[in-house]
Write a protein that binds this DNA or RNA. Structure first.
Lengths: 231, 231
DNA sequence: AGGTTGCTATGATATTTATCATGTTATGAT
DNA sequence: ATCATAACATGATAAATATCATAGCAACCT
């Protein structure tokens, strides 16, 4: 984990207020002295699988992917995280080394807090502890639901699902640039690269989407929703 | 959730000491007054998806399955939980209704604590809060790893994997009675019932296992381990 | 004890998905 | 601007998995 970075200009950081709404001004001041921001360009590694865990990290701005390097150069993408999502939440309290890697898929700024500080705050502030339990609970639940949803779908359903996810959850519009390659989409939803390309081409031929390189425009959202639900 | 049950005879409950090792005798006394045990016969439902969440539940003795009723009468089994595993951990802090059902797959005793009491303890006792974060973190991490492992395997690898899981993690021996049907195995590892039956038959013909109805004996563990890793 | 339902088992066939090969285009480095 | 590499795209074929059908056995209910 890169340890340099300037101290957070806290008054501009809306992420902080969402996370630490139960923290008093005094406690907040303490954090401001130690919290750091780090900027990563698209493609850079934020957290490396196997590195010792020292920090609590969350996304302030940008987009990252969480992935598992499964051996033989293979990757499995676990999720794509955006602002307000925690990155390392699921392992930092139970392991000494990161189980996943995190890298930026768009230019990204993360906030970094020493994990010991977080643990101290958990011990001192019950409301904060409960809030953290809630966020961890929600993150885990979402992942499980996602895994189960994906596993029930055929290949067309999966592509429909992920396109709708980009449109409705990440970019909030029907026209966007994919932040990842076809290969990475395959790693995220458990297909091969060629099949991702084929299904996207089918959707283009069927007039469901328009493709211009990385740029995707959804033309028939109702059809995508149908495919996502009934596949 | 069934609400009747006799008060816990705490001195016999080794589960309690594992979970609440940071709790003082005074706090423990408070819990003893409110914690309840409930017995469920194989097949009975412990927690029903959609029911409002009021309790914190864990397995004292026996075996349960966590499952998602996915519509059209279909189930997806998320995991099998045994003593010391939490059952409802992943949703109780972030939702108002259970996202999963839980039912006993062997005769099972669970301990039940009112969730508000747990939340109060989280607020009062920082060490307990940290311990709970660690357990939740570990549970979630295990599930994610399991999903990712399973998704990389073909059908023979999945059957090998689940048989080894029963042998090494649940029954701690190479000969055991399956606690679930072939259909439920299919729901756990994402296959069809017929394929589970076929692969088990293949393993029997290849001399890898011996099958006697629900009773399974592993004859060639090295082969199973190989199949689990290279499929 | 008998009947009903669910589970197990096997065979045949259909469908889905992966793999391999080849060519084109885009991107990044020099 | 050029070259090399990676990504995208398409076609053909193989492999894996699901589906459908049928029969026998086990478990549960009356």
């Amino acid at each position: 984990m890169v340890t340099e970075g300037k101290v957070c200009e806290c008054k501009d950081c809306i992420v902080r207020s969402l996370i630490f709404e139960h923290v008093s001004s005094e406690e907040l001041g303490t954090f401001c002295n130690t919290k750091r921001e780090q900027f990563f360009k698209k493609g850079q590694i934020v957290v490396k699988q196997g590195d010792p865990i020292a920090d609590f990290v969350y996304v302030k701005e940008g987009l990252v992917k969480l992935y598992n390097e499964a051996g033989q150069g293979r990757e499995q993408i676990i999720s794509i995280a955006r602002p307000y999502d925690f990155i390392s939440l699921l392992t930092v309290f139970s392991e000494t080394h990161y189980h996943y890697s995190v890298s930026a898929i768009e230019d990204t700024t993360v906030c970094i807090i020493n994990l010991e500080r977080i643990k101290e705050l958990v011990c001192e502030n019950g409301s904060f502890a409960l809030d953290l339990l809630e966020r961890m609970s929600r993150t885990a639940d979402k992942l499980i639901k996602n895994y189960n949803d994906i596993n029930l779908k055929n290949l067309r359903g999966r592509i429909a699902y992920i396109l709708l996810n980009f449109a409705d959850k990440i970019y909030l519009r029907n026209r966007f640039d994919l932040p990842v390659s076809r290969k990475e989409i395959a790693e995220l939803i458990g297909m091969t690269t060629e099949n991702v390309i084929r299904i996207l081409s089918e959707f283009r031929k069927e007039g469901i989407i328009r493709i211009n390189g990385k740029e995707i425009e959804i033309l028939d959202k109702a059809k995508l929703e149908f495919l996502s639900q009934h596949a």
